[in-house]
Design a protein around this nucleic acid. Structure first.
Length: 525
DNA sequence: GTTGAGCGTT
């Protein structure tokens, strides 16, 4: 016998009665039909007055032990937690955790820009109107188009959409979509990769004194958040760059004065130079290298190369925010903490996503981040797995969930594990574990070992076999042939192309090809 | 009138 239970989107919203199945469960698909984007249910436990999650197993929501009763159930939606993973513990403001998710989401929205999204796998018959209508359930749709053959008018089976709000975009990216009878994937289009520039993680630190070492700056600024890089130009030029894992931290510091070693330094925007031409503000000679600090000035005499040992870890640079592409992925560790329940309403409490490119440190390869999160995460959260190849170590075995659901949650179906967009289960309830992020396959395939590509190095679309440098740290190697490609068209002296000692990945050809994406940000140091 | 991995005439 079919019964109905009342489900509301949120407290205070009008509930919708949804039919249960013969076995008394409520299909997630039924729920999602009424509330697109929802991933689970919760209800208020009258005894504890706490919200309690509904068990979700293989797409079926199971009634509490006492039955569905007359409670009103509320939808659980994937939650946008941060522009960056790993940093919830690192928030500068101690009251940050008091912010409700709505406020935080709003704040994110103001910073995170939407981009066009490609919708793959559309039925031939789906029209733009239908496409729009489907996605309007997730939020305001600014654009919807179905690509068609110019002659026949026949749909090519894919299209593009654009949302007004980033949250809508995230929700849509976080799942697969049944449109007109077919499962469709929504992704960031390849053509947009790297163009969706996140809030910069790097700040300019002015008025530095010569006795400020990299470690001094690192130590000082680490109290605001994880520092992923410090760069001090040589010879001494009274400024430095500090890169944070969390762009919010970086931004929050901009405009401030700080006392380091008794000296007042000024933090400001790192002002990336996108213009690949010529002289910077300093009036120095043109800087023809692209790729910024790493390996920059050091190559002057022809011998230096990239490796700087301690200071400069491999930083692939901010790249496309979402992993796509079939070439493996890097789910270094999916933290499984809290309640182990089926389905993605509950099973990914520790998962994070990187919008900003995680560097190797961020992936726990250097161990730094693992240490950061240590002790705060839930039991079972895996920390800092060494994953030098940047691919393949998907410890699904630890996941008490259906891999297909994981795949769906990761929005990458069978091929390639991309980045789950900033999703945080609202049901998990646990502290965020030190889960190391979901890597962008392409980023790893091409640039992870790239010494010095901190400026939007975009080795996207590297076919299998063309770039094997998946993630070898490449620290301190004497000379890095990576620099070779940065220097196209000028200034050969800087790029010695030293022994390619660390570029022995599978597949052969050493360095990332310059991608069609084309533009590299450049800091004029 | 067919197709089913991909990536946007303008």
């Amino acid at each position: 016998m079919t019964t109905y239970l009342q489900v509301a989107e949120d407290d205070g919203e009008e509930p919708i009665e949804l039919p249960t199945e013969d076995d008394g469960t409520l299909l997630l698909s039924t729920l999602a039909a009424a509330y697109p984007g929802t991933c689970g249910l919760k209800y208020r436990n009258p005894d504890s007055r706490a919200m309690r999650g509904v068990r979700l197993v293989e797409g079926r929501l199971h009634a509490p032990e006492t039955g569905w009763g007359n409670s009103i159930y509320f939808c659980v939606f994937p939650k946008v937690i941060s522009t960056h993973p790993f940093t919830a513990e690192n928030k500068r403001k101690s009251d940050d955790h008091l912010e409700n998710s709505t406020a935080k989401t709003k704040r994110m929205e103001s910073k995170q820009k939407c981009s066009d999204l490609i919708v793959l796998g559309l039925p031939w018959k789906t029209t733009e109107q239908q496409l729009r209508e489907y996605f309007e359930a997730y939020g305001e749709v600014l654009m919807a188009q179905v690509k068609k053959d110019s002659k026949t008018g026949q749909s090519k089976g894919f299209g593009f959409i654009r949302f007004a709000s980033y949250e809508s975009q995230m929700r849509v990216l976080a799942q697969r979509h049944m449109i007109d009878g077919r499962w469709c994937d929504v992704k960031i289009p390849n053509s947009k990769e790297g163009q969706v520039q996140q809030v910069p993680c790097k700040v300019f630190v002015g008025r530095c004194t010569e006795d400020m070492q990299g470690d001094d700056l690192r130590d000082y600024f680490s109290k605001f958040g994880e520092v992923t890089d410090v760069f001090i130009p040589k010879p001494f030029r009274a400024f430095a760059f500090v890169t944070f894992l969390d762009p919010e931290v970086a931004q929050s510091l901009c405009g401030e004065d700080h006392i380091i070693k008794g000296v007042s330094v000024h933090v400001s925007n790192a002002a990336p130079k996108t213009d690949p031409s010529r002289v910077g503000a300093s009036g120095r000679a043109p800087v023809d290298r692209i790729g910024g600090p790493y390996g920059g000035n050091m190559g002057g005499g022809g011998g230096g190369g990239g490796g700087r040992g301690t200071e400069h870890k491999a930083l692939p640079g901010p790249a496309g925010p979402y992993g796509q592409g079939p070439y493996g992925g890097s789910v270094t560790a999916i933290g499984v903490g809290g309640t182990a329940g089926g389905g993605w309403g509950q099973a990914l409490p520790g998962s994070r996503a990187n919008l900003d490119m995680p560097n190797l440190q961020a992936l726990g390869i250097t161990g730094g981040i693992g240490a950061t999160g240590g002790g705060q995460g839930p039991p079972g959260a895996t920390q800092g797995m060494n994953n030098p190849m940047g691919m393949g170590t998907l410890n699904l075995g630890t996941l008490p969930m259906n891999p297909a659901i994981v795949a769906a949650a990761l929005n990458q179906a069978a091929a390639g594990w991309g980045i789950i967009g900033n999703l945080q289960s609202a049901q998990g309830g646990q502290d965020n574990g030190p889960t190391q992020g979901f890597g962008n396959p392409q980023q790893f395939a091409g640039g992870a070992s790239a010494q010095g590509g901190n400026q939007a190095v975009q080795p996207a679309n590297v076919p299998p076999g063309q770039s094997g440098n998946a993630g070898t740290p490449n620290q301190g190697a004497g000379g890095s042939s990576f620099l070779g490609w940065m220097n196209q068209g000028g200034g050969g002296a800087e790029n010695p192309g030293g022994p390619n000692t660390t570029n022995q990945g599978p597949g052969g050809a050493s360095w990332p090809q310059r991608d069609k994406g084309g533009s590299y940000l450049k800091y004029d140091v």
